[in-house]
Design a protein around this nucleic acid. Sequence first.
DNA 1: TTGTAAGCGTTATCAT
DNA 2: ATGATAACGCTTACAA
Lengths: 339, 339
Amino acid sequence: MKHITIKDIAKKLNVSTSSVSRAFNNKYDIKKETRDLILSTAKEMGYIPNPMAKKLTQNCSLNIGLVVPEIINGYYSEVVIALQKYLTKRGYQVLVMQSDENEDQELKNVKTLINNMVDGLIIAPTVGNKNISYYLEKYNNGYPIVFLNRINDNLPASKVIFNNINWSFFATEHLILQKCKKIYHLAGYKDLSVSKERIQGFKKALKKYKFSSKYYKIIETGLLAKEGMQVMEDLILKNDIPDAFFCVNDMVALGAMKKLKDNGYKIPEDVAFIGFTETRIAKLVTPQLSSVKQPTFKMAKKAGEILLNKINNSNSKPETAIFNGELNIRKSSVKEFLN
Amino acid sequence: MKHITIKDIAKKLNVSTSSVSRAFNNKYDIKKETRDLILSTAKEMGYIPNPMAKKLTQNCSLNIGLVVPEIINGYYSEVVIALQKYLTKRGYQVLVMQSDENEDQELKNVKTLINNMVDGLIIAPTVGNKNISYYLEKYNNGYPIVFLNRINDNLPASKVIFNNINWSFFATEHLILQKCKKIYHLAGYKDLSVSKERIQGFKKALKKYKFSSKYYKIIETGLLAKEGMQVMEDLILKNDIPDAFFCVNDMVALGAMKKLKDNGYKIPEDVAFIGFTETRIAKLVTPQLSSVKQPTFKMAKKAGEILLNKINNSNSKPETAIFNGELNIRKSSVKEFLN
DNA sequence: TTGTAAGCGTTATCAT
DNA sequence: ATGATAACGCTTACAA
């Protein structure tokens, strides 16, 4: 099963290897007939171009590194899928690495990918900001990087982000308009940029409607269902249950809801819920979970687009794309008809 | 930002490139001091070995292709994670491609990966068997392939599979022992090997307990929550609701349960449910969903292991690993205390 | 339009 | 223990 090379084809047809190469690559400087002959015999012989050789001469790997926090909870799975689709169609392979919400792992991943000479990186940073300066240094040296999500609006680099502040404002306002009087925010990680922004939006809404500090709380949780459950267990013990929760994401919301339901609370009658970064599961639970939907595919695609721009035109300018979402109101947050 | 090469190092130290190469690769035939000197200056100069060049000379890509049906529903996400972990640690990159439950897409993926000269393939085939003969031909020509899941026990190739028949027998038997008298099976795709096997186990249990054909049904559904909902909607319209459902997977079960709950049925009191291929969401819904848990990580790891064996020792024998799981009984299927 | 030959950055085979 | 050199499969000046 030795691989056929352009040499084999050249020998068979009594042409030079350059002609064979040209037949595959050039549009013009080869005669149509020889070109056709070469291509057809190549096919006949079962020729497959050796990507390693090609990459070596062209000094590119045609690989893109994608670093995400995790791919188990749906959101980043969709990011992966969207980018695979976009980049594969353009001749690139995507190397996905997970950070498991761990900064050190993330840095390791990035370094592994750089050592593998990926042509560019898309990074959805994990909680913490220890690594950002390292990434920025690379970026400023001309390394093609696009940041996706979880990154500050004012980071001086190409990035694709969601308008967390506005949409968490809307989500909170929705709860307020449902006449919720006491609203807690399950807030993810205090060091996570999206958490910070969602807190900002939350506070903005409370301020607009003049909530005194007695009537809200911001509670750090993490991002997992398990963590939503733990926090809720704690609140139940303390008998400190408000009439609404706005959660940093759907998983935390689902965990928290589950715990409340198991303890006899009615949702939304006793406690209203709204999540964020809508997942498919939102529609499978009872009651269905209200949430903020993000345009995941579009955002991922945009990140790919910016990256390829940079790769193909190394002095393209930094670009920031900010996306908006939609508020999907479902049963978990609708109290009004009760009044 | 030109890359440092071994030539640069060689020139700087007045040694030959072969010495530099040796310093990085060989254990013995270089003097310790020169070796150390070379390594330290290399580090100083910021040398990164060019993987493309290395791969070209060694005629391997250090890439493994992984073809899965999808990665959105948790199960195959875990497969991806497990294999990434296992293979990355051993110097390989994993190229993941999704088939979207589409045979043609799957074949395309496999061909793309082969054209990219991955060193081996792990395939979790999608529904249908149109491509299997193509894969087998490659396999028989010595191409390293391991099949994971969704493949017949008697396929003459290396494979890692789950004992679907036994565990669907156990799941069904559990429902029977809960005194369920009429059990429907939501069965996935009729052309999917795991569906077939789970149907076999289902029937085996029914036979053991002498269910007449009036008291069970096997209904083709697909594998998505949405499809579980659709089928259930249909059954509700026909007023054809048994007292238990055994579902081909958790997603179908969740969709079906949701539809029933929304129509006023009590679970498990009116209808008991058990899923398969347990997902994390099983514990987040009310009532929690009973399911059969598969040792996903172990199975994926085993697939990686068999594949690397084959790659490193091309005349290693075909190997089949069959795994067992566990039956996790939760509230959705427990009726007995009601009697 | 085609061929020759150098080069991409390594490793591997010989000598020395 | 080290160096010279060919080779891996392809692209690309440059020459013809």
